[in-house]
């Protein structure tokens, strides 16, 4: 519990500083003006969405190797957070696109890829809800998460590079350079770090909740059998 408080307090301070710095400390970018400030929230959200997807895929592989329910909890919890952060990344992206492109949604390859990441998460939950047996649910969901994980690089990295996109260069770009000045980079990296810690804290909370549910179910079943 004390450990949990530490995480929470650290995040509260760190994220508050990041939010303040994004608006007051970081300078405006030359061409895009005030709208660039969304970058400090949009990119970390997209990063966390991708990270949770990778964590879910790895946990799924581990689950298929030795069927421990803990791995399934990680995959399930991480997918939940992934869905949340894809929504946040889409919304922050749409706010920016509305200002710069004049339209919140225009099926730019980047928007398409985040949208379909969202659909994959939704399909994952739909599959889980359709299976009652917990072991089978975990096994088939793990398989789906791996297949989706394999398909993901195609629309995160390959498709947006084949078709023209108006999206500013992503972090992993062709020239391999980060085009930001010093202060912007400081805020940006702090925000990336803050969001990553936030993700792991939320994951921890969610897993604790799933473990609680699992223990409760186990206890109820044992009591039922004893009667």
């Amino acid at each position: 519990m004390r450990n949990g408080m530490w995480w929470k307090s650290f995040l509260a301070v760190w994220m508050s500083v990041v939010i303040w710095a994004a608006f007051y400390y970081a300078p405006r970018a030359k061409a895009l003006g005030e709208t660039t400030r969304v970058l400090f929230f949009h990119v970390p959200c997209a990063w966390v969405a991708t990270l949770s997807f990778i964590v879910a895929a790895i946990a799924s592989i581990l689950y298929l190797r030795n069927a421990r329910p803990q791995y399934d909890w990680v995959a399930y919890a991480s997918s939940h957070l992934g869905l949340l952060f894809t929504v946040l990344a889409s919304v922050t992206g749409a706010v920016w696109a509305n200002e710069i492109w004049g339209d919140p949604w225009n099926w730019d390859p980047r928007q398409t890829s985040i949208f379909f990441l969202m659909l994959i998460y939704a399909a994952y939950f739909a599959l889980r809800s359709g299976i009652e047996d917990p072991a089978k649910q975990a096994r088939l969901a793990a398989v789906y998460a791996i297949i989706a994980g394999v398909a993901m690089p195609f629309f995160m990295f390959i498709v947006p590079r084949i078709y023209e996109s108006l999206h500013p260069d992503p972090l992993i770009n062709e020239s391999g350079k980060v085009k930001m000045n010093g202060k912007m980079l400081q805020v940006f990296l702090s925000s990336m770090f803050g969001f990553t810690v936030l993700y792991f804290w939320m994951l921890r909370q969610k897993i604790a909740l799933l473990r609680g549910e699992f223990m409760l179910m186990k206890k109820l079943i044992q009591e039922g059998e004893a009667r």
Binding site: F116, L119, I120, A123, A126, L127, Y144, I147, A148, A151, F154, F155, I158, V159
Partner: peptide, 8 residues
């Protein structure tokens, strides 16, 4: 379930 995976 197929749509997101088949999208590429």
């Amino acid at each position: 379930m197929t749509f997101p995976v088949a999208l590429p």
